[in-house]
């Protein structure tokens, strides 16, 4: 099998430097990473080590200071913000630590809106959203607003939203960070199960070693450097 086909995401010599009050601060320093299709990769590291920044760069949510990123055969650093957004549409799913649901929309609308924006017909988008919410066990709460849902339920809506378009890759940033251990565990079970059903790759940022152990591969981020964890 050709390597270019099997590799879904690739980062080469990725660096991110920002301006801080006392000079420049290096967050990522020449990071290299590959993620194969269907593979689950965990990135571990202490707070402030640069894990979330790396995740944002891999998903095209931010721009690197130097280095290159290929996502599903497209070089992101050649794209402008709009092209990156177009590339994400339908291909990339994202689960955030703080859920990031739109407070003015119901659970169903939160899941269906990205589908509608990618051009799907309203009826199809709603059907697909209903299926996704059903898969995460929230079929009874589709018309609830985020404020009316618990933290675990909100994160399940976020997972349904991430998985509904059947993306090729899922990015998850500390998805259990705001949840208790038992809820967190159920959320991870759900996320891994849906990922497996979809056959999507997963890049999971966490500082929970037990959670990371459930992934195919684990990497450790220390002071902006990424290294394999055995």
């Amino acid at each position: 099998m050709n390597q270019a086909v099997t590799l879904l995401c690739r980062a080469e010599q990725l660096s991110k430097v920002i301006d801080a009050p006392d000079g420049q601060l290096t967050i990522l320093s020449k990071v290299n990473l590959t993620v194969a299709a269907g593979e689950a990769v965990a990135i571990l590291g202490a707070s402030g080590s640069g894990k979330s920044t790396l995740l944002g760069l891999l998903a095209g949510l931010d721009q690197a200071t130097s280095g290159s990123i290929w996502l599903d055969a497209i070089c992101l650093d050649q794209c402008n913000e709009d092209e990156r957004a177009a590339h994400r549409s339908g291909r990339v799913g994202f689960v955030f630590q703080s859920f990031q649901l739109l407070p003015t929309l119901t659970a169903l609308e939160n899941v269906s809106l990205p589908l509608e924006l990618s051009g799907q017909h309203r009826h199809d988008a709603r059907q697909r959203a209903l299926t996704a919410l059903n898969q995460v066990g929230l079929s009874a709460r589709v018309n609830h607003y985020p404020r009316q849902l618990s933290g675990g339920e909100q994160q399940r809506v976020a997972i349904a939203r991430a998985c509904a378009p059947a993306p090729r890759i899922l990015f998850a940033d500390e998805p259990t960070g705001n949840l208790d251990a038992a809820t967190g565990s159920r959320i991870i079970d759900l996320l891994l199960q849906l990922r497996a059903n979809l056959g999507a790759a997963l890049v999971l940022v966490t500082h929970d070693a037990a959670l990371a152990a459930r992934c195919d591969r684990r990497l450790l981020m220390t002071d902006g450097q990424l290294e394999p964890l055995t």
Partner: peptide, 19 residues
């Protein structure tokens, strides 16, 4: 503030600038 967050989430899920 609310608008900034809404637009960022929609951009994350691939909404086009023109849209």
């Amino acid at each position: 503030t609310a608008r900034r967050r809404e637009l960022a989430i929609l951009r994350t899920f691939g909404a086009q600038r023109q849209q």
